[in-house]
Amino acid sequence: MKLDMVHDIQRVYRKVVDCMSKPGHINNICEEASRIDLDIDFYNSTVVLMLMLLDPEVSFKIFSINEDKITKLVNQLTYAKAETVENANFIFVLRDTEEANIGKAFERGYEGSLIDPHSSATIIIESGSITKDKDLILSGPGIKDKNYVTIDLPHNWIEKRSLKNTEYPLGVDTIIVDGDSNLLCLPRTTEILKQVVK
């Protein structure tokens, strides 16, 4: 079955809106992702997000061991331009990349300017499983009291992200997807604390 570029993309967009407005809330896009019939080594859900976000008006950067091959594919699929990590509007950090590249995406991604904070990068990360377990405590706009999530990623990304987002409204927004097509958003306003077990 083929992905419906109108209705499937709309459904995914609404789920992303839902996640972005309620950080820590997990939505699943498995149904839509299963309609991707490409021979690829990364998540189908990432392709759906690429199709939802990218077009010739924006640029992207891929972190992957197959960076060249995937960059070419994404360019052919969306006509978006490949850019350096410092200048890309969307940075995709794929599961097969080195751990250090997650930190690099946060360190070097564009945080916007005080006049145009919306020009900042959005970082899309492929992670291991995302669950509602209480590893990370989230707070900020969109969260009633506190939200809890566990994201299977090497932990140093949290410090790098927090450093990047220190000078609000400057900062990067993050979308995280896992292998089961679970989706989670962390806008720059979300504060993340690690649960300490005594």
């Binding site: 570029m5 972005m20 939802m52 077009d55 409204p169 927004d173 306003t189």
Partner: peptide, 25 residues
Amino acid sequence: FAFFDEGSKREIRRATLKAIAIPGY
């Protein structure tokens, strides 16, 4: 569907996601 071409929707959607991420901006 919904009057717009998909390119227009995509541009509005990108702006909306940034708007949600920066409340009030």
